[in-house]
Write a protein that binds this DNA or RNA. Structure first.
Lengths: 335, 335
DNA sequence: GATTCATTCTGAAGCGTTTCAACGCACCCT
DNA sequence: AGGGTGCGTTGAAACGCTTCAGAATGAATC
């Protein structure tokens, strides 16, 4: 009834403890017949290795901690999936923690991971966790920042080039003939929001005759997008932008609701629209939404790879990997 | 440089191993002065308890495994959050695994949890995991099914009464004067889909003069909802339902797109619409959507409580807890 | 037959914690 | 003075695994 351990298996198979362990961990050094006998004993007893003992011996757990800002955000779940794949390839698993943008929870997870002696941690940091991560590193636990540049922090990072994303979106609007571009966003204290704006500015700057109007809509939600859309609808036709770029897809969906529902403005005929993030709803919107997609899974996978490299060789210099986003063109810009 | 352990702390504080452990685990039995000295030593050395050793000694880890079908589904993330809260209250943490509806991943997580000697597992099962869970139970790891009735399986479960949800939705449609109700759904092999239908049938049956038309739209997505909506738009006005209940919110959003965008049918004037799940997009739809909400977090929290009860006393009879869903009324039924 | 070598297996040591019986001590009560 | 009580502390044992130096065996070489 009590869980079987290696000793029980060894006794049943008529071998020593060490041999059972070898069957489990280095099967190539034990003779096929012995291995077979041991396997049968394992089967018979329903033996399951005790991970705690194994970890205690090994000095570290075979897991990687991942703290994300919000599991409900598909960006992070895709990222987590990528990280899991990467970890799985190395025989590790991912411990997923959702900080929900709470400092307290973020810290709690890092504490937990430290007690667990994880292989390393991946963090999409709420704010400045550099000091905390520094402490982990001193203990031999490397960390990689995800979705945030680690430049200057002394840590490696994987992130997406939001400036390029903004440029991509607006270049596209310009390439389909739009001249009066508007950037709709809120929460300008998020670096993502301002980086995308910077990219938009660059695109406009390099195309004479185009203008960029920046509209602060106060937030990043559908409702705020719709309100902003209504204000645009209310404008005189020749005062409206003919291309709109929004800081995320939620805003774009809101804008779309206002334009298509509450007016006869055509999308993309009169106004072309590009969102950001390529959420599921982007392609199922009333007018399928062009959007900038981030390679989330790749981000996760790469973060794990860097982490493992650093776990292997702690003297490695921190690396900042920046991925390029991708534009997904749909009917909101090209009918 | 090497991580400090209790021995180091004990040496620095000039006490024995046991005392350090007592400070950590039963501070009330050690004198304040000693405790203080130990705490200072811990601080100074940056001692962090090694969870593996602790778990090895304890025989089980202080975590609960949770396997969900899809982390991207808000229902499950809310559930996970509830489970975390419940676990946190008991000093445990949640190991979250996403099976992504893959048998392989589901099994892999259960294996992992077993090796980790988790306190118990919560599973939203892909199919029949009863045998596997039986094995876990024999090893002293209790399991609770979530979002699925465990009746007959020998396991406790927490789920939501989908029949009641269907009844609730259709009763509401009838109460606002609708008589020709349609139920739009796909994937009739999911028990949720058929249970909701059953509830709808019950509601119609108890209100003479009302009818229920069941429309199989082939799936559960926005696109299929929109296609179905278009077919309804194409019907003669007096052949259309005046109340539509959909198996989930995605379908409802699709229907809404078709009705409001591609016709002059008014919602709720001509057709009232009720969805299911109350996803974020329900309230930000062009016409905010009435929907049936499930108490996801409560489900998670309760599942953990039952699990801990069973961990404490394995002879407990399995309990089937069924929660009642709640109707959230918005403009798609009541202007 | 002695020596070397490769192969396979053994079993004790040790990972860091918690637990628990035992101990020392001060104090109080006869 | 002897015995009892309670508090605070001690330190060895145990949890189940992996590792590793060495033993045992058999084959190959001299």
């Amino acid at each position: 009834m009590a869980a079987a351990n290696v000793k029980d298996v060894a006794a049943l198979a008529g071998v020593s403890l060490g041999t059972v362990s070898n069957v489990l961990n280095r099967p190539e050094i034990v003779s096929p017949e012995t291995a077979d006998r041991v396997m049968q004993a394992i089967e018979k007893l329903g033996f399951v290795r005790n991970d705690a003992a194994r970890q205690l011996k090994a000095g570290r757990s075979n897991t990687i901690g991942l703290v994300v800002l919000d599991v409900r955000n598909p960006f992070f779940t895709d990222l987590a999936r990528g990280a899991e794949d990467g970890a799985g390839a190395a025989g590790l698993s991912i411990l997923l923690g959702d900080s929900g943008r709470s400092h307290e929870r973020e810290t709690a997870y890092l504490d937990l991971f430290e007690e667990q002696r994880v292989h390393g941690v991946l963090v999409s940091p709420l704010s400045d966790v550099a000091r905390r991560l520094e402490g982990l590193r001193r203990r031999g636990i490397p960390a990689v920042l995800v979705d945030r540049s680690g430049t200057g922090s002394g840590f490696s990072s994987v992130s997406v080039d939001d400036v390029a994303g903004g440029r991509l979106a607006v270049e596209h609007l310009i390439s389909i003939g739009r001249r009066r571009i508007a950037y709709l966003a809120g929460s300008f204290d998020f670096s993502q929001v301002t980086d995308r704006l910077r990219g938009a500015r660059e695109a406009v700057a390099s195309h004479p005759g185009t203008t960029l109007e920046v509209i602060d809509i106060g937030g990043l939600t559908v409702l705020e997008g719709r309100a902003a859309g209504e204000r645009i609808v209310a404008r005189a036709a020749d005062d409206r932008p003919d291309g709109i770029f929004t800081a995320n897809d939620l805003i774009a969906v809101g804008v779309l609701q206002a334009l298509v529902m509450q007016s006869d403005i055509r999308v993309p005929g009169d106004v072309a629209l590009v969102g950001y993030d390529d959420i599921d709803f982007a392609q199922t919107a009333v007018v399928p939404l062009s959007s900038v997609r981030q390679p989330s899974a790749l981000l996760g996978r790469t973060a794990v790879e860097i982490l493992l490299d650093e776990a292997r060789d702690p003297t490695l210099q921190p690396r900042q990997i920046v991925f390029q986003p991708e534009l997904v063109i749909r009917a909101s810009t090209v009918p």
